[in-house]
């Protein structure tokens, strides 16, 4: 369970990004964070993976209060989180295999375990035959699948994606969204920041709408009630 209590964020230059956000995301949920540019979607995600500290409020991930974590514990927390970004954030000088293997190397797994798990994950995203290629030799969709494989290889409890379909054409975007749906079905909590309305309609899930750093609506497709609303 991810819980945010009255979280606010003001950047060092004085620009407010989020105001008094309260939110609960149960384990295994699939949630979209949406809103126009500058609404605070990316800031919210950055707070969740501790790239930023909130200016006020508390964030609980499971039983851990992430606002008080030290560098080493932040690193350990991130091992439970998979990340997918619009710009893929792959290491272009390393092969597909090495990119996917990276989180496992960080966790100190043996070579044998790494090989097995990476291969299985590449099979899962359908790139096992391109494991020696470098990211820049792949299409955008394939690069995003490598990023998803890297995020999922550690079997994270939470998958965060920031505009994951932003750089992809429609067909590839659908393919990636289908992959997120499959991942969510295995029990992983999926949180996607996006403003791609077409995808929100095609793959309906709980949607939290941000505007000017406030939550203006929080709706689930199977119910009309608003779970939280903080303005």
């Amino acid at each position: 369970m991810i819980q945010l209590f009255n979280v606010g964020k003001v950047y060092q230059n004085g620009a407010p990004a989020l105001h008094d956000i309260s939110l609960k995301i149960p384990d295994g949920d699939f949630v979209y964070i949406t809103g126009s540019s500058g609404a605070g979607k990316s800031t919210l995600l950055r707070l969740l993976y501790c790239a930023e500290k909130p200016s006020r409020g508390q964030i609980l991930m499971g039983e851990r209060n992430t606002t008080r974590l030290k560098s080493r514990n932040i690193a350990l927390l991130r091992r439970d989180i998979g990340f997918v970004f619009q710009d893929f954030k792959l290491l272009n000088n390393r092969s597909v295999f090495e990119n996917v293997a990276l989180p496992l190397q960080v966790q100190g797994l043996s070579k044998q375990e790494i090989s097995t798990q990476v291969y299985q994950m590449l099979q899962y995203v359908g790139l096992e035959y391109k494991l020696q290629r470098k990211p820049l030799e792949l299409s955008g969709g394939e690069q995003q699948r490598v990023a998803i494989a890297r995020a999922m290889v550690v079997n994270p409890r939470l998958l965060l994606a920031d505009e994951p379909t932003g750089n992809l054409d429609h067909e590839l975007a659908v393919e990636i969204m289908e992959m997120f749906t499959r991942i969510n079905e295995t029990g992983t909590t999926v949180l996607i920041a996006t403003h791609d309305k077409e995808m929100l309609e095609r793959f309906p899930h709980r949607t939290v709408v941000l505007h000017g750093g406030n939550i203006v609506s929080d709706d689930s497709p199977d119910s009309t009630d608003t779970c939280e609303e903080t303005t």
Binding site: R78, L91, V106, Q107
Partner: peptide, 16 residues
């Protein structure tokens, strides 16, 4: 610096 950022995101400790 991209490499450093990515390493941080995937849970590498500062020393690693």
């Amino acid at each position: 610096r991209d490499e450093l950022e990515i390493m941080g995101l995937i849970g590498a400790t500062p020393m690693f």
